[in-house]
Design a protein around this nucleic acid. Sequence first.
DNA 1: GTGAAAGCGCTAACAC
DNA 2: GTGTTAGCGCTTTCAC
Lengths: 319, 319
Amino acid sequence: MSTIKDVAKAASCSISTVSYALNNDKRIPDITANRIKQIAEEIGYFPMAAARNLKKRNTDTILVAISDFGGPVYHELLDGIQHQLAKNGYTMIVSTGVSSNSLLKERSADGAIITDIHITDESLIQLAKNFRPIIVLDRRLHDINIFNMTIDNHNAMLLMTRQILKKGYVKPAFVHGVKDTYDNITRFSGFMEGLNEQNIELHSEYCGNFTKESGIEIANYIIQNNIDLPDIFVCANDEMAIGIMETFQKIGKEIPNDFGISGFDDIELARYVNPKLSSIRIDHFFWGKAIANTVVSLLKKEIVHIEKQQGTLMFRDSF
Amino acid sequence: MSTIKDVAKAASCSISTVSYALNNDKRIPDITANRIKQIAEEIGYFPMAAARNLKKRNTDTILVAISDFGGPVYHELLDGIQHQLAKNGYTMIVSTGVSSNSLLKERSADGAIITDIHITDESLIQLAKNFRPIIVLDRRLHDINIFNMTIDNHNAMLLMTRQILKKGYVKPAFVHGVKDTYDNITRFSGFMEGLNEQNIELHSEYCGNFTKESGIEIANYIIQNNIDLPDIFVCANDEMAIGIMETFQKIGKEIPNDFGISGFDDIELARYVNPKLSSIRIDHFFWGKAIANTVVSLLKKEIVHIEKQQGTLMFRDSF
DNA sequence: GTGAAAGCGCTAACAC
DNA sequence: GTGTTAGCGCTTTCAC
């Protein structure tokens, strides 16, 4: 492995000159700089991140911590973040699980974007004591170094609920995801506000965990216990909705004749299930770019204005 | 930000003692070690990666470079890799686009797993001059520091083709993905071997780029130019197959009555389209774990035995 | 315009 | 069992 010393030796100059040349310091004339760059290239020299980071006390890297790579929701978000970060000269690294914690604590990145329910609020607040900025997408935290960029779940769900009630549904059920998560709480509150506006009572509620499997379990539970059906299931996300749909269809129920159903996220599958699932679409690519811009601005100590990301109602055939 | 010096001061000992204690050196008695750990905890000290990496000349991190986060194929693979890497005390970071190149050149990781068609063979071979190990999943490269862990596309496609021909299809077309990629070349060669075994001629071939959109374009091209249809489209992946299916169905074609179709990868959608798409399933989670194990062994300088990952034929309703 | 040298935060060889 | 110290590869201040 070649170091800056090797380049200096080959170019018969000092290491500081090499460093200046490679970092485009204007003090070095172009002729010299180009010669040095050429030699560095020939030798196959590239500055080592660890050394540069240690000296400069920054990494030009942003960490994105996600819950897992399994969900269908992250792709566009990550692509959007990467796109915009690259434009601004930052490197994006993505991690899950225990890796995220190590990377954060070891300060392997200058900033962090968190959407990982496994990382506790406490650990984030602890981290924020000497790490900034932290952008959280999946919760609301109040700390000088933490910035909340969330989806306006409440509003989107309120609008959706209004449309549902307008269609004449009067026995609505809510299907929760992981109960104490930001997404679930705010989606539920938007739904309840919609119900209250029309003085409609909540018919029933079920608790899943945002997975299709939990939707299947809920449906089976209802079927096996012969529980009175709502006339519409309003679900905290698409995956649970799809699980419920498929399970009821297996025993011959017809949607939306026997009951309606709605989702949230507008995953690709929503357009493939039969009937097509009505849902709420978030432009994740756009949102990702906005998040990246915010991190970059924050890193530059600029003043930022943060708005909740709005959703678009996608009416299809499921209610 | 607290450093090892702060801990040393607080514990009234030298920084080396702190370092030893925190790294569980047996020379430090448990009582002392625990006291120091406790103090470090209170102070909120955590070793800085850049400093440790610089000194130790390794990062305990593995980089996974992928083409993008958009495809449906990577999730399980990444989860599998992360799972097994974490078990062995390694941190996984994932990157795309230009980020991958920087991270690699700057030696931000000890090893790399590459499945990114945007990274050229040349740059990989260049990198391999002083970086090891590099595991490539999407090509075959011969270099002392590069290890090829690929899917046995040829064999899987050969087996699939045999079954197709056994069903009586005689006018088979092949739908290419990005033409000079390893996956496309080997899938095509397996297909051709199957044809040759039975002396069946290739009816026609089309060239897409592994996306659903390219499948749609191909189908539209065929329709608009009124081209003679094959009796089966053998596609280099599911997404193109689904694009083709949907486009022909829009003009009233029925599958598999009017023609058959097959895919590769067995993405989740394959089971949701109508008719359900026959495809070739790769156990990506398992494969990911195998890849991680290989990297870890390589890093420990152990001898590794690498086998191509086999696929499973999933016969459904599309031919 | 260029070079010498300090020092970032750590680990580990060496001394005691 | 603990402390002193060199040095990893860079950037940057300061001197010339």
